[in-house]
């Protein structure tokens, strides 16, 4: 990509961030804009939702894991479950395997293992504290960020200002650099499973927010090391 485009994007996002900061309603969350980010540290996160429409659907569970250097700090992971007013649709239960019963059986504020059950706003508050000013890493991150913004925007008046790193985009660039393509752009499969397979990352867990965040973190680390070595 042209260098100047990247520069322009940087200028734009800085400007947008400044404008956002002025709109922040609660100064307790100023750290999102002004906080110190630790070097070489990123937050990988993923949510499971009641559906795929950020305008209507809600977050059911959210997992965020800190990446520091080559380490994925799973022991300090944030795992949140959010009880729903409306029932979770059958289709999405099939995907993320969180049943209505799971949310109801876990009482609010309960802490089982390292999973916390919190009401939506409190949960997102914990999430904001967890991510601080660190860059966010995800797979189709736009959707997850939109889901969080849907809570944050009406509450704090702003959207998440953190830098975003999209692993599917990193992967796309990596593959592009590997394939010596001519004028015709190669068709690169960006399915999560395909990426895992091609990068030879073992699929460690079942499909849930935590495993997805963990696998995404590993994709990110592997791609980073590929970029470094090339």
């Amino acid at each position: 990509m042209a260098r100047w485009l990247d520069d322009l994007a940087g200028v734009l996002s800085a400007w947008r961030k400044k404008r956002q900061f002025k709109r922040l309603r609660d100064p307790r969350y100023a750290f999102l804009f002004t906080g110190e980010a630790e070097t070489d540290t990123y937050i990988c996160f993923d949510c499971e939702t009641t559906g795929l429409n950020p305008k209507e659907d809600r977050i059911v569970s959210l997992s965020a894991i800190k990446i520091r250097g080559n380490q994925v700090l799973t022991s300090e992971a944030l795992n949140l479950l959010i009880p729903q007013d409306a029932a979770i649709s059958a289709e999405s239960i099939v995907v993320h395997r969180i049943r209505n019963a799971d949310l109801h059986s876990a009482a609010l504020g309960d802490e089982e293992g390292n999973v916390e059950v919190l009401p939506e706003r409190e949960a997102i508050g914990r999430f904001l504290e967890f991510i601080g000013a660190h860059p966010l890493v995800g797979y189709y991150l736009e959707f997850d960020v939109a889901m969080v913004n849907q809570v944050v925007k009406p509450w704090l008046g702003v959207e998440l200002p953190n830098r975003r790193i999209e692993v599917s985009e990193l992967y796309y660039r990596q593959r592009l650099s590997e394939l010596e393509h001519g004028l015709a752009m190669p068709n690169i499969d960006l399915k999560f499973e395909t990426i895992l397979q091609r990068l030879q990352i073992p699929n460690i867990g079942q499909h849930d927010a935590f495993s997805d965040a963990l696998m995404t973190a590993l994709i990110f680390l592997k791609l980073q090391s590929l970029v470094k070595s090339s």
């Binding site: 080559n70 380490q71 994925v72 700090l73 799973t74 022991s75 300090e76 293992g113 390292n114 963990l214 973190a217 590993l218 680390l221 592997k222 090391s225 070595s229």
Partner: peptide, 10 residues
Amino acid sequence: AQQLDVVYFP
């Protein structure tokens, strides 16, 4: 299990 982190080495 709760105290495990994941580390990646090229």
